[in-house]
Design a protein around this nucleic acid. Structure first.
Length: 926
RNA sequence: GCUCGAGUGGUGGAAUUGGUAGACACGUCAGACUUAAAAUCUGAUGAACAUUAGUUCGUGCGGGUUCAAGUCCCGCCUCGAGUACCA
């Protein structure tokens, strides 16, 4: 037997684990490099071949960096709180911790087989109390903080209390809920409870009645990023809007910094753009309109505030629209319209969020009977309600400019409201002119200005009049932070006199209590309410909500730096050495969830002085998903006869998913198929050329489509080194691609060929100490250069090709020279570590290949004295001719034109021009 | 609708600043070895025409710039991802 991957891979796996080869030290004279994978949720299905794609890429990079002399931190862990384990607990009664630990050990087995260079001493599991103790601790810090707009950073709540005591809140510029102004005396006179209540309006983690996305099927609220197209991301259940008492995080305080600092990150433009859109900054003005309504008492004064990005169009306002949920609606509606308004609101409530979203074309609305006064013209402007206005954005009210906004335009047309053009151009009255090109008209003092000039001119006028101001509005909402679930971090919070209070640090972690059932209680309380004695020593009730999935994952990258520290979430020394993640690899689907929350927490911890960097992940690469490639067999209708793919059109057939593990190169293993399901045992087959050929289609990998391929089966058949190289060989890392094993034998062949370079026909290790030839050195150094460039550019597929070319050339050269093969083994060890370690040892080294020096590229070996030029006529390559590099252009031109083939292609004509690009090409224009 | 990304042989995919399109691999075909098969090795393999020499066409489509375009510019088409009444 020649290349025996099984024994080689077993041997080195064991060796690395025993020697702790990949242990990262926090003290080192080497420069640090932190390579991180997005940690997985350990699901019951285990890993499929798509999961390791990113892990292999990051592992190659981590190993490469070690060869380049870096002290590399490359850890792995598990995001182990989450819904599936809990759903399983609800169905079976098995504690989610048991399910989770079973799944984790399965994952670990699978990961171990692939030969990753993780430092397992730093493993974290977010559901372990010694980890979530620190998630709770960070929550406490956020609870005990407020955001100062003047210093533009988070500060401790004590500093706020001190200012209230001394000056009241008039001078405090904070990101907060709306709070009435009070003086120092008034503050000091308040009861402790009243003071607490006010502080809740300032805290960065706070509790309040808010509109939430409620998913009754899952029995919990969901964050905006956990909803896709109006349905829950997990399970696809309906989601409705509901008002509930919830914990939230004031991420909106960081909106601007989260946008600005994107510029400092080496991420793809696509992800940055997604975050920018999610945060949704828009510049404009907020303007107050004075209300005139018969419904108001004579001494009552109401102003309705709107936000607009087009204050320049203020003279085009012909009506106002409020969201049906807007708090003013009931107060301003006149008696005459009360009934109609009530009917309209009922109707919109019945339309689910999903209907409202999928059906944006139906225009509906209702007049309230109230009017507002135009602040510049004094005109009476009718106030309507309409469900095209969102309650959750801005103030839930818009000034409608139908001439220059297509939604207002549709509404005005339907209800016959006036359309006043204020900007020249466009195609009124056919459609609204939403663009920003044109000159202002019908606009008093703005007439004649361009749109941009008018926008700058109007804001000071609005401010002078005292009716509003320039404003920046964000789409980003504060993040709901509580879930009505069992399998999550308990809050370190208890209630005293109805006010939330934090537990002392010595009481952490607050561990999950035992419950009999994992369902909500009969009166709708979260599962923790089922726990007995869910109270503090003083008998105060403990919070029954748990934290969302993103809590633990928002800071895990910091814990790896100092994973076993009992006294701190991460020590100052460890954090200031490792700082932040240099390279992060994972899917792009976390753009608006995990990646945004982690940036938020990092900035908060930075503001509070706990960490030394503002951003968690400097560079990120998003690997593409590996899709499944399903295979089909074609059963002739109403029979048990299957017809091969090429012949199926001659029959009326039904395609049936067949397990891809029974198919190789689209040829079905008929015997395995017969044994697969009882009803196929007696099946007949119509073959083509003696084989049953399957059809194929690309779909997501899933159990139900029988297209899941586990890495274990590949490792079993070909070895981990083949799997690693094949996954890279499949194509560019970022690209989505279907899994298909059609080419895997090529990679396996390549490794066997590599092995044979070091062995004779009888598999004896034979290596020569002779001087390498010029050609051999050229092959080696071309490989060094290309592989290095490729790894730096994350172009792993092309470096696999480069290795193949190299080994093909060395095989042709019959090269078994130590001075060529040793550097090659080092080059290869980040891609195929097992075989490389084995060859390195056979070469007589005892110290392992992991920490060798990356071979040095020497350009001198690639220097050529001549170049074979492609000779083109009118851009078409016709033949090749070699010229010395030091020959001058005139001489080249003379020789090339004298060539017999040139004479043939010139066909008697004289060349117009001869272009000679040194070391590139010769082109003759005829 | 908007924002990103991608369209290259039978297949996965290569192609520095514009400079030999199809590297590498799979598959297919032919050959060697073998009683036979597997494994291995060698050769051919974008398409069409041509006995050969060779010719023409060819990177989603249509234009353009250039001695030269997969690559740059303009206008489209198709597919994938994200987002969606955000005023």
């Amino acid at each position: 037997m020649e290349y025996n991957f099984r024994s080689i891979e077993d041997k080195w796996r064991k060796h690395w684990a025993e020697q702790k080869t990949f242990k990262a030290e926090t003290t080192s004279t080497k420069p640090k490099y932190y390579v991180l994978d997005m940690f997985p949720y350990p699901s019951g299905a285990g890993l499929h071949v798509g999961h390791p794609l990113g892990y292999i890429a990051s592992d190659i990079y981590a190993r490469y960096k070690r060869l380049k002399g870096y002290n590399v931190l490359h850890p792995m862990g598990y995001d182990s709180f989450g819904l599936p384990a809990e759903q399983y607990a609800i169905q079976t009664g098995q504690h989610p911790a048991i399910t989770t630990s079973e799944n984790i050990s399965r994952y670990r087995d699978q990961l171990d087989k692939i030969g990753f260079s993780f430092d397992w001493d730093r493993e974290v599991q977010t559901s372990e109390p010694n980890y979530y103790k620190w998630t709770q601790w960070i929550f406490k810090q956020i609870f005990n903080a407020w955001y100062c707009k003047v210093e533009d950073k988070a500060k401790s709540i004590d500093s706020l209390v001190a200012r209230f005591k001394a000056q009241g809140n008039a001078t405090v510029k904070a990101v907060s809920d709306e709070v009435a102004i009070f003086t120092a005396e008034q503050w000091n006179a308040k009861s402790a409870k009243e003071q607490e209540e006010i502080l809740l309006s300032y805290r960065l983690a706070f509790r309040s009645e808010t509109m939430v996305n409620w998913c009754s099927e899952l029995g919990t609220v969901l964050a905006n990023d956990e909803i896709k197209e109006g349905l829950s991301e997990r399970g696809g259940h309906p989601v409705i809007q509901k008002k509930m008492m919830q914990w939230s995080m004031r991420i909106t305080a960081y909106a601007q910094r989260l946008i600005d600092d994107l510029n400092t990150l080496d991420w793809t433009e696509a992800i940055k753009e997604q975050q920018r859109n999610w945060i949704g900054r828009s510049e404009g003005a907020s303007i107050r309109f004075e209300l005139e309504s018969d419904a108001l008492a004579t001494d009552e004064n109401i102003e309705i505030e709107v936000f607009t990005t087009r204050p320049d169009t203020i003279f085009g306002v012909s009506y106002m629209t409020l969201a049906p949920e807007n708090e003013y609606v009931s107060r301003i509606t006149t008696n005459e319209y009360k009934e109609a308004i009530r009917e309209y609101i009922d109707k919109t409530k019945k339309r689910s969020e999903r209907d409202r979203m999928s059906d944006v074309k139906t225009v509906s609305g209702q007049f309230t009977g109230a009017y507002v006064k135009h602040p510049f013209t004094g005109a009476k402007i009718p106030v309507w309600i309409g469900d095209y206005v969102l309650a959750s954005y801005g103030t839930g009210a818009v000034m409608a400019v139908p001439a220059h906004d297509s939604r207002d335009f549709a509404f005005a047309n339907k209800f016959d409201l006036p359309i006043i053009p204020v900007i020249s151009g466009g195609n009124l009255p056919e459609e609204s002119h939403d663009g920003k090109e044109g000159i202002l008209l019908n606009s008093d003092f703005l007439n004649g200005l361009k749109v941009k000039e008018a926008t700058t001119a109007i804001i000071p006028k609005i401010e002078d009049k005292g009716i509003g101001r320039g404003k920046i509005q964000y789409r980003l909402r504060d993040a709901i932070f509580s879930r009505q679930r069992y399998w999550g971090e308990p809050f370190p919070i208890y209630f005293e006199d109805g006010m939330p209070k934090t537990m002392g640090d010595k009481d952490l972690p607050v561990t999950l209590p035992k419950v009999e059932k994992y369902l909500p209680t009969e009166d709708g309380e979260p599962p923790l309410a089922r726990a007995e004695h869910w109270k503090t020593a003083d008998g105060n009730a403990i919070e029954t909500n748990t934290m969302p999935g993103w809590a633990g994952s928002s800071w895990y990258f910091l814990r790896y730096m100092d994973a076993t520290n009992d006294g701190e979430f991460v020590s100052k020394e460890a954090q200031s050495y490792w700082r932040n993640v240099d390279l992060y690899i994972g899917g792009s689907e976390h753009a608006t969830g995990h990646l945004l929350y982690s940036r938020f927490w990092m900035k908060f911890l930075f503001d509070m002085g706990f960490v030394s960097e503002q951003e968690p992940f400097k560079k990120m690469i998003n690997q593409g998903m590996i899709l499944g490639r399903s295979n089909f067999a074609y059963r002739i209708k109403d029979t048990n006869t299957f017809v091969s793919y090429g012949l199926k059109d001659q029959h009326d057939t039904t395609p049936i998913h067949v397990d891809v593990n029974m198919v190789e190169n689209d040829v079905l293993d008929v015997e395995a198929f017969k044994g697969w399901r009882a009803d196929f045992t007696n099946a007949d087959f119509i073959l083509e050329e003696g084989e049953y050929k399957c059809g194929a289609e690309v779909e997501k990998m899933s159990k139900s489509k029988f297209n899941v391929v586990s890495p274990d089966s590949i490792v079993e058949k070909y070895g981990a080194d083949t799997l690693r190289m094949y996954e890279m060989f499949l194509g560019p890392l970022e690209q989505f691609k279907p899994w298909n094993t059609n080419g895997i034998s090529g990679v396996n062949n390549f490794l066997r060929k590599l092995w044979r370079l070091f062995h004779d026909a009888e598999n004896n290790f034979v290596i020569s100490d002779a001087e390498p030839t010029k050609e051999e050195l050229k092959t080696l150094h071309r490989t060094i250069k290309k592989v290095q460039e490729d790894v730096e550019a994350f172009s792993f597929n092309t470096s696999v090709s480069t290795f193949m070319v190299c080994v093909n050339e060395l095989t042709t050269q019959k090269c078994n020279k130590r001075s060529v093969l040793e550097p090659l083994v080092i080059l290869m060890c980040s891609y195929a570590p097992h075989i490389s370690e084995e060859l390195w040892e056979l070469l007589g080294h005892k110290d392992g290949v992991t920490y060798q020096d990356f071979p040095k590229f020497e350009a001198s070996h690639l220097v050529e004295s001549s170049h074979t030029y492609p000779v083109s006529f009118n851009g078409k390559m016709r033949f090749k001719m070699e010229f010395p590099l030091d020959m001058n252009k005139t001489e080249i031109e003379k020789q090339i034109l004298a060539h017999e083939k040139s004479i043939h292609y010139l066909d008697g004509k004289s060349p117009k021009k001869v272009i000679i690009v040194p070391k590139k090409i010769i082109n003759i224009v005829v």
